[in-house]
Design a protein around this nucleic acid. Structure first.
Lengths: 220, 220
DNA sequence: CGTGCTCTTAACAACATCATAACAACTGTA
DNA sequence: TACAGTTGTTATGATGTTGTTAAGAGCACG
């Protein structure tokens, strides 16, 4: 997963983003004004910046203009600022997201930008299980496991939103498609099959009255 | 691997290409207008140029016309500019690619152009089968196998993207060409023929509802 | 204008997958 | 504990996907 710099001056939002990104396996650094971005750049190499436009000392546009390194940028903009969006994309931003946003959406945009930039790790490992996302293969103790398309889409959704409790409806949206009209119990059957194939009875936690969560420990 | 000049004025695209090519082992130089191509040529010898058509100062067509050296060229064209493509190929381009493209496709085209230009010799072996990519020959137990052109293009695509699940559409793009309009089932028939000739029923895995994957080794 | 080769398409057989239903086991709550 | 609601588990047929074969369209070559 990626090393991400979060430049956002509203502290609660910054923290919220950081925690959520770390939950799904990224490592993060938070800064609260534009100038601090450059201080951090001297210390680490990042794979991605989340850049708020309205910030003290130096706004997001100035940051991206002054930025020497070439690194994917996602702008965070206030609602409705359409010309900001255009301006940002012209300056070389890879994507933008409008406040208030939902964490699932931010996660999806981050994955997509990283994938385009060729940065994303295409495999996920936990215990004796490895999931190769580009090869569409799942291994247990190095032995390939037979996964059906729907099972793979589902495990993919769980991995990309690890440690997040996903309702059956949300899982249907992500893995089946937004207009799927079928029974939510279908999810249960596929979860059962995945658990059985990978010995993941404890890893995929049931969230009573809600759905499921892929549980991976991580330090906040 | 090769030394590649990237002439593309859109900075983010130029950078994206450079990074991806360097990831797979090429060395690259980026320029952002047509005239700079000739400046770079005085400094180094390149194995390949990626040449955008629409560029400041001197467009891609003028560049290839003025070009003295004999060097493989891949044009980068905007979507739908069909006569540009024809014009480019007439002027001596070795290949073209349409924006927006994906890195898999660009990588495959670069490998193929370099091979045609005799810059890279390659062979691939697995079990009793050896594929001589530069010589366009396939051997089984040292015995040459009759491969039709289309079969060879397909096996080439699979080898260059081994362990990656490729959709039928993607295989059509890579092995047939970007604007092929035919039936995707055609792929199945050629896969069947290749499997039969090489005893690769298990090596070329079917990825249900998606396409095929050349499975080279069990990985962790 | 044939001949031989390659590629595409169509057709059908073989196969894999998935939603659903039906019932068992479990969970939380009064 | 009893209950109502929720989740686990299993089996099955309809549906959609892939394997396989063969016919013929298209093409290059003489």
């Amino acid at each position: 997963m990626a090393h991400i710099l979060i430049a956002e001056d509203e502290k609660p939002i910054n923290t919220l983003i950081r925690k959520n990104l770390m939950l799904v396996g990224h490592t993060c650094v938070s800064v609260f004004d534009g100038e601090a971005v450059f201080d951090e750049f001297e210390k680490h190499r990042f794979d991605l910046i989340l850049l708020d436009i309205m910030m003290p000392k130096l706004d997001g546009f100035s940051v991206i203009t002054k930025l020497q390194e070439d690194i994917p940028v996602i702008f965070i903009t206030a609602r409705g600022a359409v010309q900001d969006r255009v301006h940002g994309l012209k300056l070389g931003a890879d994507d933008y997201i409008v406040k208030p946003f939902d964490m699932l959406e931010l996660g999806a945009r981050i994955d997509s930008v990283l994938r385009r930039a060729g940065k994303v790790a295409q495999r996920f490992s936990l215990g004796d299980v490895t999931v190769d996302l580009s090869g569409r293969q799942v291994f247990r103790d190095g032995v390939p496991q037979e996964f059906t398309p729907q099972e793979f889409l589902l495990i993919e959704a769980l991995i990309q939103n690890r440690n997040i409790a996903l309702s059956r409806d949300k899982l249907l949206d992500i893995a089946w498609g937004f207009d799927y009209g079928g029974d939510t119990r279908t999810v249960d059957v596929h979860i059962h099959n995945i658990r059985k194939k990978l010995g993941w009875e404890a890893v995929i936690k049931t969230v009573y009255k809600l759905g499921y969560r892929l549980e991976v420990e991580v330090q906040l």
